[in-house]
Design a protein around this nucleic acid. Sequence first.
DNA 1: CCACCGATTGAACGGTCGTCTAGCTTTCTG
DNA 2: CAGAAAGCTAGACGACCGTTCAATCGGTGG
Lengths: 217, 217
Amino acid sequence: MRSVDLTAEARIRRAALEMFPTRGVGGTTVRAIASAADVSPGLVLHHFGSKEGLLATCDRYVVETIRRYKTEPLADGSLNDPGFLAQIFSIAPPILRYLGWSLARGADAAAALFDEMLNESVRMFAVAEEQGIVKPTDDDTARAAVLLTMQLGFVVLHDHLSRALDTDVFEMDGLTRVTALMMDILTHGLFDPVALQSTRESLEAATEMVRRERRDS
Amino acid sequence: MRSVDLTAEARIRRAALEMFPTRGVGGTTVRAIASAADVSPGLVLHHFGSKEGLLATCDRYVVETIRRYKTEPLADGSLNDPGFLAQIFSIAPPILRYLGWSLARGADAAAALFDEMLNESVRMFAVAEEQGIVKPTDDDTARAAVLLTMQLGFVVLHDHLSRALDTDVFEMDGLTRVTALMMDILTHGLFDPVALQSTRESLEAATEMVRRERRDS
DNA sequence: CCACCGATTGAACGGTCGTCTAGCTTTCTG
DNA sequence: CAGAAAGCTAGACGACCGTTCAATCGGTGG
C-alpha cells in the first residue's frame, strides 16, 4: 500500500483529484471528499480554506505535476531511469484524467499549461523548419495550436477512445498504442491531396455563400 | 429578433443549452434558467419533469441537431443551398459548445454520437483502402478512433484554441481557418519518418522497462 | 356561456451543502 | 515538562437548491 502513510492533507487532495473529474465540481461535496479521505469535513476547509481553494489547489497540483514530468527528462537525461518511467505510468491515470477535465472546464492553471505547450510547440516547429523537416506556413502559430488540440484531444476524450479500443488509454498498454497510432497519422498523413483540394474549394464556396447571405440581410 | 416568438419550452431549452456548458450542471440552477428564459421556476419542471430531465433533453436535442446537419446534405444534395449553410453557421456556436462539453462529460447521447461517427469513419476508411488512397493497418478501428478524437479535439478545446488564434473557432471565420489547417495536417503529415522510427523505438524501450519493473515487484 | 385543460405562477417545504465555531488531541519546542 | 502551535473533530447555522402544490390565466369545444 502506498496511500496508507499519506498526510491527511495529501489524502484529501488525492480524493478530490479523483472525485472532481468524475462527479463534477457541483456534484462533489466536501463531505464526500472528507469521507473518502477518512477525515472530518471541517479538516478539508481547515487545510484548503474553502471548496474553491481545494479545487484551485488540485488544478495547480496537476499542472505542476505534468510540468515536472515534461521537463525533467529533457533536463538531466533521466529518460533512461526505469524508476522515473514507472512513476509516470503509475501516477499518470488520475492526473491525466484530471488534466483532461481541467482543460475542458477552461481552468486557469490548465489554460496556462496549454499556452506553455503551445509556445514549446511553436519553438519546435521553428527548429524543424530550419532543418527543412516541415514546410513553413503563413500561419505558424495557428498550425501549432491546431496540432496541439489534436494531440490533446485524446486526453479529454479518453472515455470514448477507451470504449472504442476496449482498453483504458491512460494505462500503459493503451497509452503506447494510441501514441504509436497518433505518431503514424501525423507522420504519413491520411487524406488524398487531390481530394483535399476539392474539399478546400467547396469549403471556400460555402463560406462565401454565407458571407453574401449575411451582407444581404 | 428570432427568439421573441419562441415557445416558453423552447426558450427554457435554449437558456439551459447556453448555461450548462458555461457554469456546469451543478452551477446552473433551475431558477437561473427560468430567469434567463423569462419564466417561473415551476414551469421548467412542469415541462421537463426535473433538472435531470432538462439536461437529458438538452443532450438529446444537441445530438439530434448535429445528426440532422450531418446527414441531410448527403441525402439530397442540399449542400448547395445557401440557406442550409447559413443555418449551420448561425446555429452552430452554442450547439458545438454544448457538444464539446457533452463529450467531455461522457453524456450518454454524446457517447452514442461518438460511436456513430466512429462507425462512419471506419466505413470511409474501408472505402478509401479499396481505392488505394490509404494503406491498410492491422488496427483499422483503432486508427479511425484516434483520428476521430484528434478531429473532435478542437470542439472540446475550443476555448484554448480560440484564445491562441484570437478568434472564436466556432464562428465562421475561425471555423474555416481551423478546418483548413486540420485538413492540411492530416493530408501531408508533419513529422519526419526517420525521427518517427527513433521515437517509436524509445517508446517501446520505455514500455519494456516499466513492464519489467512491474513483474519484479 | 360554461366546462375543461394545458400553460403558468408564486409561495412554501424539506433537504443538503458550504462554512463557522468551540473545543479536544497530538506534536513540536524552548 | 510546560505551553504554544498545529491537526483534527463534532455540531450547528444560514443559505440556497430542487421540487411540490394550490391557485390563476387563457383559450377551445360543446
